[in-house]
Design a protein around this nucleic acid. Sequence first.
DNA 1: TTGACATATATGTCAACAACATATATGTTA
DNA 2: TAACATATATGTTGTTGACATATATGTCAA
Lengths: 110, 110
Amino acid sequence: MQARIERYVEPALLLLLSEGASHGYELADQMANLLDVERVDYGNLYRLLRSLEGEGIVESEWNDELPGRSKRTYELTDQGRQLLDAWVTSLRAANESVSAFLQRYDERNT
Amino acid sequence: MQARIERYVEPALLLLLSEGASHGYELADQMANLLDVERVDYGNLYRLLRSLEGEGIVESEWNDELPGRSKRTYELTDQGRQLLDAWVTSLRAANESVSAFLQRYDERNT
DNA sequence: TTGACATATATGTCAACAACATATATGTTA
DNA sequence: TAACATATATGTTGTTGACATATATGTCAA
């Protein structure tokens, strides 16, 4: 039993990319840090990135200039920034709903 | 795109039952009110109730004393109360995670 | 120089969850 | 007696996330 926001990695991804372009492997680290979890699943993250690219939310290109092997670097599109804003609005509403829930619980368990 | 807590109806159900025994059809109304949604899906709610009964989280019995057709009335077990407590702990953590997320977003969008 | 490990990207599989449709029984009321 | 509300229940399906696996390349120590 573990309360979880459905598709939470998606807004986390958008937020991180809104702070600067990055690539999958690095995003996974940043996200684990942001969400305070052990680590996020690489496979699903890469799939999500490709899927978002298909929808015009992010854009990518291979980057060979950094040391190490080639990285596919992603950045947000304008549409992606809009989607992040929509997520934030929605997450605020969800958070208020949960706050109301917890308050109702606490009222009966003082 | 709609931020949603996974299995949110479950803790909502447990909270409502912790405030008093009830039956499925009535719980659906109370829950729509609690979660501030149009309405919850009856089918999935009844299935959830049966499933929770199988796990010893709730107990039920037919109640013919009220007017109208027979109702299967559910109440929480001790195990159910413990599960509610666990949900609350977990929801608090999730809420704090989302709060941190929103704060980080707001910092860059003042 | 090779073996072990970290970095980096990617696909395959599967169970669960929620959305939506449908079925059935019974009570109420116009 | 027809329409509607109450009440419980099962069937079906797409999406999501957990877990497993594959592949390529860079780094570093023995």
